[in-house]
Simulated scan of single mutants.
Amino acid sequence: MTSYSTLSDSELTGLLKQGDTTAFAQIFAKYKGLLFSHVYKKIRDREEARDIVQDVFAGLWTKREQINPETNLGGYLMMAVRHKVLDLVGHKDVQSRYFISLSRFAQDWEGTTDYPIREKQLQFVIDKEIAGLPEKMREVFLMSRVSNLSHKEIAAQLGISEQTVSTQIKRALKILRSRLGLMLYLLMWFKL
């Protein structure tokens, strides 16, 4: 039996295409450090870098049947992380501009006489949306945002991994942003 560590990238890719998990593990072991290093140099955030590398390998496994064994595997993986980094940077730029815009609008909005009423309405809507989150996600989110606990403290209290805590908070924020975006617009413009 041949050792997987002696196989070329094209041989490993051919085996991967057939669903060989050992070939996938060998590819992961061979490239994870290089990809993490590359991503970390670009974004300087270990958690985000790990997430990007993990996403790239998850995508590799998902799309394994479409990969040509003759493809330059290292180049393919580097291009995949490059696209993920660009997506992340673009998303953060848009997010930053959105929060700046929202902040400016909030400063202008504070002068209105019905501010206390709108604030109560908004708090009610936010509380309702948080209550609508799945139970575990809501618990993790509230521990983070209301109790101001770190991911490590939450993980220790709930007996889950820090990665799970991070994922739950990211998902909760995504859900809340999508649900509250329209409500904020309606509250601010139509004075509900």
Rank of each mutant, 00 (worst) to 15 (best):
L158Y: 00
A80S: 10
F105M: 07
R171A: 00
M183V: 15
E162Q: 06
D20V: 08
M78F: 09
E48Q: 09
Q168A: 01
D45K: 04
G75S: 08
M137F: 00
Q18G: 13
K63P: 13
L35W: 12
L102R: 14
Y76T: 12
K42Q: 15
I154E: 00
Y40H: 04
G19N: 02
V39L: 02
S178V: 04
D87F: 06
L77H: 06
A58I: 07
M143N: 03
V94G: 13
S178T: 08
H83L: 15
V53P: 06
S144D: 01
G14C: 07
I126P: 14
T21I: 07
W189P: 11
W61S: 12
Y185V: 06
E119S: 09
I154T: 01
S161C: 11
L12E: 02
D114V: 07
A172K: 07
G33P: 05
L86D: 04
Q66G: 00
L158W: 00
Y4T: 02
I154Y: 03
S144M: 09
I126A: 06
A49R: 08
A29Y: 02
L133A: 02
G59R: 14
A58E: 15
D114K: 06
Q95E: 14
M137I: 05
L88W: 01
K84V: 02
T62L: 01
I154V: 06
F28W: 15
Q168W: 07
L73I: 07
K191I: 11
S101F: 15
E139Q: 05
A106F: 15
K136D: 03
V56R: 12
A172R: 10
L73V: 01
L15Y: 11
D87P: 03
A58C: 04
L182K: 11
S96T: 14
L173W: 06
A155R: 11
E119H: 05
P134R: 05
V165W: 10
L149N: 10
K136G: 00
S37I: 03
T71H: 10
F57G: 14
Q123L: 12
E162M: 11
P134V: 04
D20S: 02
E135C: 00
I27W: 03
P134L: 00
S161T: 14
K30E: 11
Q157Y: 00
A106Q: 14
R82T: 13
G19Q: 04
E70I: 11
K170E: 04
G14R: 11
K32Y: 15
T71P: 08
W189T: 13
F190T: 07
F24I: 03
S37W: 05
S147M: 04
N68H: 02
P69R: 09
F28T: 02
E70Y: 06
G181I: 01
L12K: 12
V94K: 12
E11P: 12
F36I: 13
D51N: 04
R177M: 14
S101C: 09
L186N: 15
A58Y: 10
L7I: 05
S178L: 12
P134A: 01
L12P: 15
D55V: 09
E129H: 08
L187T: 06
A29D: 07
Q107F: 10
S103E: 07
T112W: 12
E162H: 12
M188T: 15
L176W: 09
K191D: 15
S8T: 13
S166D: 11
M78D: 11
Q168G: 10
T112Q: 08
N72L: 01
E110I: 12
V81E: 14
V39P: 03
D20Q: 02
G159S: 02
L73W: 08
